[in-house]
Design a protein around this nucleic acid. Structure first.
Length: 287
DNA sequence: AATTCGTGGAA
DNA sequence: TTTCCAAGAAT
């Protein structure tokens, strides 16, 4: 039974995969890596146009590495979590410097890059280098949990999640890579968090959660995150000002973003500490 | 292990 | 309108 789950997923994927730009022929490992970092906590729909612009400007890691970090931050625009842009730039420097401008092929070397964790390392190894690894993101965790009869997975990816996903993969490397992409796609399009479309799911026949009635938990599956008025909010407001500024701005130009001076100061200090903002002669700019 | 870190669209 | 959360990583 479980030995042909991967085929159900892969066959469905062959017919229903979205035409995402990084899935087109000719995409380089660098292109895959950029797509994965951009997609961390950001909807793929919003990533697509940003990815095309990024790869058009910086076709290889060395092209990005040659630029100041601020250029990466500005190009990142409103994808969110701009520290990802900083880490992607740092990863480009490491690849250009230590790996002959070639994206590493081992999990260990990939995980050693800034901003590349358990998920992204395996995604790059599988989707760029066509290796056989469990690729476990929030979609795969949810699909695997439901196959086993649970309505949702835990908060973070555990070694047990990796083992569970690995069990679903076929022996062949290429088949395994396709299967991982398929499981992610099913989670993103069919087996969604709020309103799963089990009637259209290729795995419904082998899904314990579907068999047992598709009961969803009542409350939010994560703790509700406040945003308005938080440091994160104010950091975003400050970064928006600096992204738009052509020249370094004085402190007063940042005072308008939020009414509480204390929170403004804390947000700005945090951005400077993170390397997202540079201070030059009492003025502020992207680094 | 629990927090922190942006942004925007859909329900 | 408010709430939820979307291809996670680092600390």
């Amino acid at each position: 039974m479980t030995d042909d789950i991967w085929r159900l997923a892969a066959d469905w994927f062959a017919e229903n995969a979205r035409d995402l730009p990084w899935r087109r022929p000719g995409t380089t490992p660098w292109g895959v890596l950029v797509s994965e970092v951009m997609s961390q906590q950001t909807p793929v729909k919003r990533v697509a146009p940003a990815w095309e612009a990024w790869l058009d400007r910086w076709p290889t890691p060395a092209d990005l590495a040659a630029e100041p970090t601020g250029e990466a931050i500005r190009m990142w625009n409103r994808l969110g979590y701009p520290r990802r842009a900083l880490r992607l730039h740092a990863a480009a420097v490491a690849i250009a410097t230590d790996h002959d401008n070639q994206v590493p092929t081992t999990i260990a070397a990939l995980e050693a890059l800034p901003g590349i964790g358990t998920y992204t390392a395996r995604a790059v190894a599988a989707f760029a280098h066509r290796q056989r690894h469990p690729v476990v993101d929030t979609n795969v965790r949810r699909v695997v949990a439901r196959l086993a009869g649970r309505p949702d997975a835990g908060m973070a990816t555990t070694p047990a999640d990796l083992r569970a996903a690995e069990q679903l993969l076929p022996p062949g490397e290429e088949d395994a890579a396709v299967t991982s992409a398929a499981l992610m796609e099913i989670g993103a399009l069919i087996c969604t968090a709020r309103a799963p479309s089990c009637a259209e799911c290729p795995l419904a026949a082998v899904c314990e959660w579907h068999a047992s009635g598709e009961e969803l938990p009542e409350g939010p599956s994560r703790k509700p995150q406040k945003y308005t008025g938080t440091d994160r909010h104010v950091r975003g407001l400050i970064m928006a000002v600096l992204r738009e500024a052509d020249l370094p701005v004085p402190r007063v130009s940042l005072d308008g973003v939020w009414h509480e001076a204390e929170r403004r100061e804390r947000a700005l200090a945090g951005l400077v500490a993170d390397g997202l903002v540079a201070v030059e002669d009492e003025r502020y700019r992207l680094p």
